[in-house]
Amino acid sequence: MSKVAEHTPGRKLFSSKIAALVVWTITIIWTIPTFGLFVSSFRSKADIYATGWWHVFLHPHFTLANYHDVLFGSQTQAAVANGVLPYLVNSIVITIPAVIIPIVVATMAAYSLAWVKFKGSDFVFFFIFALQIVPLQMSLIPLLQLFTGGAHIGSITIIPKLGIAGHFAGIWLPHAMFAMPLAIYLLHNFIASLPRDLMEAAYMDGANHFKVFRQIVIPLSIPAIAAFAIFQFLWVWNDLLVALTFASGTEEIAPINAKLASLVGQFGSGWQLLTAGAFISIAIPLIVFFSLQRFFVRGLLSGSVK
């Protein structure tokens, strides 16, 4: 396109300048809210309530006290008496298995559906693909019941009470379940397109399916796995609904997002802590975003159905 613009000088002069002006205007408007919160997180409580954050350009005065208070606890704010560090730990503890386990399970399923065909495997794949239309809201009540009470038909117990409600496993499992349809669909698309010759050569050499899976499928699928991993990471890290549902009432395992959401409600006068708290929770996905932007875009592109 830019090549074309060079061929037609009139258009280049006219539109590229206006285009740049419009794009930059919107970009600046888009960035101001985040920037304002970022600046505020380094201002003292007194400053935040006395003047708008834009006054820092005239009277620069910064402090790290908000970050210290919100991370390690503050005597004056009962809501964050112990700090949000434990919740940050919870977020990490929730996210790592909730990303790794579903990816492994989905890669296995995708390999089987693509390369170990059986009668009806295409139908199974289509069925899983179609399951994407079930919103996770449909599963919340039954899953919660399963975790707290088990499954019964009449008086016969099919699945005993799992007792994982209020434990990390009670959040890992729903995240793994809800990730399945999209993960299998995306990974299947990729794994099915691996070179047939390579796979057949490996089978000829006497490698069984498990060896092929470990030594050929996984290494070659890393780009697709990485793209989905980033998508799933952001999904889990930024999630509120699953966390509120399966960790509700259990401060012990609540992620930082759930804690922040409850702080917003409680704080009449705690902006200095909310700003710092919000930035701590945003920092990790932003680091991932800026360092792995290309994978990130690919993950979002393919995950746009979820």
Binding site: T31, T34, G36, L260, F289
Partner: peptide
């Protein structure tokens, strides 16, 4: 500009809500 415009995608709705509550 592309990165800056795309950045909010990486921020959770909870984080975005705090940013905008302040606005």
């Amino acid at each position: 500009p592309k990165s800056l415009l795309f950045m909010p995608m990486a921020i959770s709705f909870v984080g975005a809500s705090i940013i905008w509550r302040f606005v």
